[in-house]
Design a protein around this nucleic acid. Structure first.
Lengths: 336, 336
DNA sequence: GAATAATGTAAAAACGTTTCTGCAATTATA
DNA sequence: TATAATTGCAGAAACGTTTTTACATTATTC
């Protein structure tokens, strides 16, 4: 078994309380003599003592950890955010743990429970569609929580979200200004509000520019599991039967298979088909032609997220539910 | 504060040992009556009791968790592996925690310590260059460990690695067979063995095909931090001054900026410059022309990794250090 | 009908920390 | 020189579980 504070104490010829005081930097206030402190430290170093956080956290009542649940751990949007948040909270001595829900309600609930069981001090949550109750539960348990990217009408919580409506509106308006008139859009079927907002943005932009909304140009894409072929056949139909001149991809999840499909079908971007993606992506510079997208202020979002959760953990009770809105800007490239 | 087993016990009118037995599925063997068990379960459900894993693990002496440290959390190679491993170990009731070291020795050491302090039951480690001592330490502490991707000569440990030499050899041979003769290669400067192996593969392939090794075609790329410009200027020099006809990118870290640079410099792939990447990537199908690469058997590697670590945790002491070699196959596309 | 076995549960120790209280020895104060 | 304050530490309780042991009560066996 691993070394304990008790082993150190007996090697050093002192009590465990002395060791504890030294190790937690309280040697001064506990009036431990320099020599004793030094001896304890030397022994710990030599024996490579590693404190047991389970015991420590159990006793202290907090863990100095934050759990982050994202829908898709391979989505660069979330990974970049996670990196930023990780650095921010580390500055205050917190460690960030990241887990993915695979956009699955049950798994989302499970990883949240797991974090709660490990008594993380706070949670950052990019929730799944059916997590409303879970969020309500976390609220009731007064577990510090920040919702990221996704939110629920009727649930009040700290939130860091994007201006989904406006970004979509701007994107579609941009396409229209570029002369596109038959604009298809792809998103996955979901009841989540942030996606509804984007869809509304799409519709409003059309309406405001006098273009009739055509439901046939917005085929529903089921979430996950080889929707790639579905997307491909939809694109083919839309081009061949419905004469579209552009596509607005509302998510990474549809954009990446979509771009692949367009390439496989041999459609020319941007001459035959204009493309606009909601999320930016490192690779969009690499692809030829490069892909125009909305660019999200990840730095800003991550920092806001970190600040909100840390404030909540530290019990700044006065901070009433806050919703931070992040706005995007269009990264113009060659695809439309 | 959160509910405890004590609260449940008093609500149910029984002792905490009874509650514990029921909750840990030992109602039968502890001869708890059906009614009592049912009552306890009902109360837990109604009150939404969440067991405190800190206490539980402290007492039990294990956490049912595995820590995984990767060099770069945004590298799709590692994320995909992590996903596979996560699913595999979950089958046996283990939870995987993932952390990134950013290829930094100190951070790597820190996250390992953090995992050790939290008493994970095992560690999967894609080590950084200077982690040899850390690995030796983990060995000495008898902490179940599997090295992934990177290994250290002279350190014996369970390992899941690729056939770096052979993959590189095959890649370069492929380029040669396609008529390329002036083959540059890019990797980052490191003393890590897996990278040396790839380099040796490159050199052997040249030698075996009667091509003289030209050091000028293998410029050193410093690890991290805006090496993008360096890569770009190297590529330009190599093309303009050294007349290269192809590049073998040995890592994602050089391949992605490299491809971007080639695109920016306006060199034509594959006519002017052939490209071969060591790691496969989802986007390599999307880019035009699509990029030829070695394809790694991630499924196989992940499963091997999970099996090794689980065996070690369960104390199959008979399993002597094992090195699992995964071999790649060439995914032929259009870039060379 | 007495001894034995089975049933259902409670009590207590333990896991490795942190933290509060106590206390002897030394030094300072009056 | 007696009292008070300070110094340097030890002891013990507590955190929320799990697990072992103990112990009444009831049922079974001879």
């Amino acid at each position: 078994m691993a070394l304990t504070i008790k082993d150190i104490a007996s090697k050093a010829g002192c009590s465990i309380s002395t060791v504890s005081a030294v190790l937690s930097g309280k040697a001064e206030s506990a009036r431990i003599s320099k020599e004793t402190a030094q001896k304890v430290e030397d022994i710990c170093l030599k024996l490579n003592y590693k404190p047991n956080m389970l015991a420590s956290s159990l006793r202290k009542g907090f863990t100095n950890t934050i759990g982050m649940v994202v829908s898709d751990i391979s989505n660069s949007f979330f990974i970049k955010l996670a990196n930023i948040i990780e650095h921010e909270v580390a500055k205050q001595g917190y460690q960030l743990f990241i887990a993915g829900s695979d956009e699955d309600d049950e798994k989302c609930s499970k990883v949240i429970d797991s974090f709660v069981n490990f008594r993380v001090d706070g949670l950052i949550l990019a929730a799944t569609e059916g997590s409303k109750n879970k969020v309500a539960f976390l609220n009731k348990q007064k577990i510090p929580l920040v919702l990221l990217d996704r939110y629920f009408p009727g649930i009040s919580a700290h939130e860091v979200v994007m201006d989904n409506y406006q970004s979509a509106y701007d994107a579609v308006s941009y396409l229209i200004k570029k002369g596109r008139k038959r604009i298809a859009t792809f998103t996955y079927t979901t009841s989540m509000q942030h996606m509804k907002d984007r869809f509304e943005g799409y519709k409003s932009a059309l309406a405001d520019h006098g273009i009739r909304y055509d439901k046939r140009l917005t085929p529903p894409i089921p979430l996950f599991r080889e929707s790639n072929d579905i997307i491909k056949s939809h694109i083919q139909t839309l081009v061949e039967k419905h004469n579209i001149d552009s596509i607005f991809f509302q998510t990474n999840m549809t954009a990446l298979p979509g771009l692949l499909a367009i390439s496989e079908l041999g459609y020319e971007i941007p001459s035959q088909l204009g493309v606009f993606c909601y999320h930016d992506h490192d690779f969009f510079n690499l692809i030829k032609p490069s892909i125009t997208s909305q660019h999200q202020p990840l730095e800003e979002m991550g920092k806001a997220c970190a600040e909100l959760i840390l404030n909540e953990i530290k019990g700044e009770v006065n901070t009433k539910e806050k919703r931070i809105f992040a706005s995007s800007y269009i990264h113009e490239r060659e695809s439309c």
